[in-house]
Design a protein around this nucleic acid. Structure first.
Lengths: 148, 148
DNA sequence: ATTCTTGCAAACGGTTTGCACATAC
DNA sequence: GTATGTGCAAACCGTTTGCAAGAAT
């Protein structure tokens, strides 16, 4: 999963368009993100990958750049509620509205959504036990003060 | 959202059936969980709620009991990937298989799932921007060694 | 020359662990 | 009396911040 020349050029163009400096670190982090594309990597994974080539790189640089990449739309967080465990008393299968700003979670019980088909190809013997639809967006309170 | 006598009795029965001691703390935590049912509370929220009645209760006790409640099936974690941010290079709308054991995430692109209807009642003016289906279960590697 | 980025170190917040004391059974 | 649960404190881990030194433009 090596980065092509075109991917690199596109990335550089994207940086310039956004007014971002093109540093070796930033390029290496982008390459590491691409190289780990199918693994849904954490910052730690990116850090370890980049460190193979730049042993002195700082964790901070990884974090700052992942944040930057997200603003650019190059990557997206799989788990918006990554910072603390949240519990649900409703153990029946149902769905969630998640406000990306204030992290409010609202339950959704919708008949139409209950007719969801299982995924056709369950990714290499994956045994599905449960599923839920996560709607992300902005709650009523956060819409006026939204950033991004 | 006060707990009914029946709910309390059921809870006590459930504890006894599982061989768990019925402590004041455990009861109070259960009641706090129920009282915050629609808020999808974090451990901190539960802690603050219980502390109003038991000011000396320990955070540790909250954690241990939330864990216990999850094993009993009384509560469920909304966000299995709560401990660290995970990034996705694929920014197109798609879906995920998440292994509850090893936290592996596998992308799912499925035509059938793309025809998902928006929720009928968008919970008080919630503005939906995106959505994704999260299938949870066990990956092929974890099925033989699964706990729970 | 100026602006943006990096690296270091320290703080932070949520989570988890070890162990002595207390409680439920 | 024994097994289980609690409270305290400290460790832990991922994340975030402040700031001086360095690199990109």
């Amino acid at each position: 999963m090596k980065m092509t020349r075109k991917q690199q050029d596109d990335f550089i163009a994207q940086c310039r368009a956004a007014g971002l400096s093109v540093t070796h670190q930033r390029l290496a982090i982008f390459e590491a993100v691409m190289a780990n594309g199918n693994r849904h990597p954490s910052a730690e994974v990116i850090y370890q990958t980049v460190r193979e080539r730049y042993p002195t790189i700082s964790f901070n640089t990884i974090y700052k750049n992942l944040e930057t990449f997200e603003e650019l739309g190059i990557v997206v967080k799989v788990n918006p509620l990554y910072n603390e465990a949240r519990y649900d008393v409703d153990v029946r299968p149902h769905h969630h509205l998640i406000c990306r700003q204030c992290k409010t979670i609202v339950d959704v019980h919708d008949k139409k959504l209950d007719a969801l088909p299982a995924p056709e190809e369950a990714g290499g013997g994956f045994q599905v036990e449960n599923w839920t639809v996560q709607f992300t967006g902005l709650c009523a309170e956060c819409q006026p003060v939204a950033v991004g």
